[in-house]
């Protein structure tokens, strides 16, 4: 009895299992081939090398005197750089965080207190706020004013009034020297 059962099982293992194994292997190989073929096509849609090369911007902050602002382009968007005076830093730090829609301490938003670096795109619907040029309306908080729907940002780039939900974004940046930064 045991011998017959053993024979049946080993025979079953031969035919059906072998065919299943072959189909499984063929299927697996086919899946690998398909994936390996599809990936290069998909990857062509990722940012190309020239786009990646343009993804960092180095800025020399030397020409920006205290109290002045500079706009630079980074990844196709404007970046606002504000060389803040000590008085302006104090104002920014004196704000009660509980009053903020998007509470964030000023110290968390800067690497060196006198240099504020924020992406100049309103977090409401993407317009570029005013405030970079002399004579621009800066709103009621000394920062920036978005003319599209009236959002106002303070000296730390935080949203204080208007429909924008979040503070102006702080891009990734590092000081590569005393007064030079690399954004991105």
């Amino acid at each position: 009895m045991a011998d017959l059962a053993h024979e049946n099982i080993s025979h079953a293992l031969s035919a059906d299992t072998r065919r299943d194994f072959l189909i499984l292997t063929a299927g697996a190989l086919g899946a690998v081939a398909l994936g390996a073929t599809v990936w290069p096509f998909v990857d062509t849609m990722n940012p190309a090398r020239d786009t990646l090369a343009a993804s960092t911007t180095e800025v020399d902050l030397g020409p920006v005197a205290a109290g002045q602002r500079l706009t630079v382009a980074w990844r196709g968007k404007p970046v606002f750089i504000d060389h803040r005076t000590p008085a302006e830093i104090n104002t920014a730090r004196g704000v009660d965080l509980a009053q903020l829609r998007d509470p964030q301490a000023d110290a968390e938003r800067v690497k060196k207190a006198e240099w504020l670096v924020v992406v100049g795109v309103c977090t409401h619907l993407g317009c570029i706020p005013l405030g970079q040029k002399t004579g621009d309306d800066r709103g009621l908080y000394g920062g920036w004013f978005c003319p599209c729907h009236g959002s106002m940002y303070d000296r730390s780039g935080r949203i204080r009034q208007g429909p924008a939900p979040l503070n102006l974004a702080v891009p990734p940046y590092d000081f590569t020297g005393n007064i030079t930064i690399k954004i991105g």
Binding site: P40, F41, T44, N46, R49, D50
Partner: peptide, 13 residues
């Protein structure tokens, strides 16, 4: 030439 040099796998396509 950009496809050949800078686009990922552009040379292959």
């Amino acid at each position: 030439e950009r496809i050949m040099r800078d686009v990922n796998y552009g040379w292959l396509i």
